[in-house]
Nucleic acid binder design. Structure first.
Lengths: 255, 255
DNA sequence: CCGCGTGGGCGTACGGCGTACGGCCGCGTT
DNA sequence: AACGCGGCCGTACGCCGTACGCCCACGCGG
């Protein structure tokens, strides 16, 4: 079962780790381990095999050291995951995008989707409070800059970003579920449905859930699975941007 | 760490459990345990102490039986959680709402938010494929009926619901994080920020992240924490509904 | 040049998890 | 009255995160 949190009681320790406040002593120069090497190894494992495969023993093994050596650099697993998350944010592109705010926001949404596709474990790890590392700050700053001049209040800008990123995360999660259900059961999404459908029909007395049956099969088969999540992402994104346009237009009119 | 899934290889067993296909034999009449009693106990534990506190030993203890007795009625923990989820869906109200589709969708969003507030563990448990139990079907059917006559295609109706419910879940998750961070650290959201802020300022060299700093403090202090998540929910919901209005109007015009 | 303190590395162990396995026992059926 | 089957559950296994304390080599002050 998920856990995380627990520790983190000491803000100084956690934040110092995220911000890498630790000038390398002459002593630690020639050591085998470092926070960076540990984080890199951990991300590789999580990318390749998912968050469940990420154990402290596994990380240590990948680095060729004893399990407990990892704890020399990282207070615990929760903190390791936090640094992994901030590191992943650091990899994101932050291009200067020509065009209007809508173009920029759409680009941001797609970049975030790509992030979650590259690191699906983030979808299950980001549960607690935001990490407050340097790369998250940079990301937040960059994303705000895309809409800073459209006439919204600061609070509204934050809410807009929250909305867009929330949608991306939801859609990414749906897509990721399809993928790793496939990995775990060895069946495609379509095959999974086919194996469950006959049983479902057995239970559902005819005529119960009429709308659900019609829409469910339509939604299921029209975009024959695997393309489903992408459709949901695109549809939702355009709806969300349309909705934001309304406030933006309001503000522009009142100016 | 989170796990779930694993088992579930056998659709028949899982679905039969969800749909309670199991006529009570004369033998099982006077038994102490039942799927319902187990599920009820499990939901009580998860409601009161969170998903981390939900262990098979704990459930058995609450029922006054041996740990392994639970496995007589439930194949494993993943399946238990699935039944818990479907049961929770069953508690939701499904009133006939007067008014237009927007009124009904808004009501649905609030009902779903209330569900997540009553059962915060669902936010962390619903990760895998939807449960396909009778109550989820009923919920899906009911929610579709709210927008069945606005002129959208079946696929679009599904996407609209996905969008709205996704937003609700994101907002509920944000709100839930505030609550259980408070429970775990014993500090309010404001206190947490105050304890981290001085450290953050130490690390952030002045002038870095200018927009993030301004907007972050504005967003943080204007609606002085604890009210933040509610604002994000309301703001996002109105934006989403506005966005949906646009497609609905398009379809109405083209008819 | 030498001793020593310190910090990196890690072996062992503990408590807790999900659950496989096999046995016991009392009831309903024949 | 005998039987077998299904509810019940004690024990044990292999995982997990991590507390604790030891060893050793290295860098520095004398």
């Amino acid at each position: 079962m998920a856990s995380e949190r627990k520790t983190s009681a000491d803000p100084a320790r956690s934040l110092a780790l995220l911000w890498r406040t630790r000038e390398p002593t002459s002593r630690s120069a020639g050591t085998a381990l470092s926070v960076d090497r540990i984080v890199r190894a951990a991300i590789d494992i999580a990318d390749a095999e998912g968050l469940d495969a990420l154990t402290m023993r596994r990380v240590a093994e990948a680095l060729g050291v004893g399990t407990m050596s990892v704890y020399t650099y990282v207070p615990g697993k929760a903190e390791l995951v936090a640094v992994m998350i901030d590191t992943a944010y650091g990899e994101m592109p932050r291009p200067v995008v020509e065009g209007d705010w809508r173009t920029r926001l759409e680009r941001i949404a797609r970049d975030n989707l790509a992030l979650y596709q590259r690191h699906p474990w983030m979808l299950r790890a980001e549960t607690t409070r935001p990490v407050l590392g340097p790369h998250l700050m940079a990301k937040y700053d960059y994303e705000l800059s895309a809409i800073v001049d459209v006439g919204l209040t600061d609070v509204e800008m934050d809410a807009v970003l929250t909305l867009v990123l929330g949608h991306v995360k939801s859609a990414a999660r749906a897509a990721s579920e399809v993928v790793d259900l496939e990995r775990e059961t060895g069946m495609t999404d379509g095959q999974w449905w086919q194996s469950h459908a006959p049983w479902l029909e057995t239970f559902m007395t005819a005529g119960a859930y009429p709308i659900a049956s019609r829409v469910g099969t339509a939604a299921g088969q029209q975009h024959g699975a695997a393309y489903g999540p992408e459709y949901a992402f695109e549809f939702g994104l355009h709806r969300v941007l349309d909705g934001i346009s309304v406030v933006v237009a309001e503000r522009a009119a009142n100016r």
